[in-house]
Amino acid sequence: METINQKTALVTGADRGLGLSVAKGLLKEGWRVFAGKYLADYSLLEDLAAEEKSLSILPLDVSDPESVRAAAERIARDAGKLDLLVSNAALMGGNARCAVGGDAPVDTDALLLSFRTNSLAAPILTDRLLPLLEKGEMKRLFFTSSEISSVRLQRRTGDVRYAMSKTALNLGVRLLFNSLRPRGYTFRLYQPGWMKRVNPDGSRVAGAQIDPDESAEEALRLIREDRIDEDRLVLTDYLGHELSF
């Protein structure tokens, strides 16, 4: 249920992992949240929606401009504005068929799918949601990247498909920044850390470094607080450290 002046956010990839944790945190802080849901495997959002009147579940495939258009229409109809975009959905993607000099030829279709989902979706979402963001007050754009995106820090010998998509994302965000920072928009580019995977029942898969709930705390701080250096585009991690590109 919308209350007067309630801030509105769209979180993509919100049916599990970091997206779900950020959506929950925003709800706790009083936001109206549109939560993007892609596949039907997870029902954690539905469980949450049963208790949270400020949560709307939005069917959304970020790699499909038609789906993005429909989502923008729904937000326009139900809320009329957007203060915050959390572009978080991503496809991990295997490596084997995309490496140069690998066992099989480079798989162009796989590279393109990762590009459309992990990289291009960010500018497409921003573009299609811009009229709603213009009506919002906060004008904050949050993008989940990864340390794997950093060319400078790259020590890996694999994961090319995912790494390429996140580096491309950073550049796409730079182009958005160049256009929209002068118009008052503020940007967050976030490395959430090596997070525990979430099972369909909400329990965590063993391993990894931190829980998505923990990483979401830093994400929420970045969303809540203004920075001293909003005119710089920076990639920061869940510990608050800046990473080089």
Binding site: C98, V100, S119, S149, V151, Q154, V160, T167, A168
Partner: peptide
């Protein structure tokens, strides 16, 4: 182009 920098680095 940015993605190319990344795959060349990994390669």
């Amino acid at each position: 182009r940015a993605a190319l920098y990344q795959i060349l680095t990994i390669t």
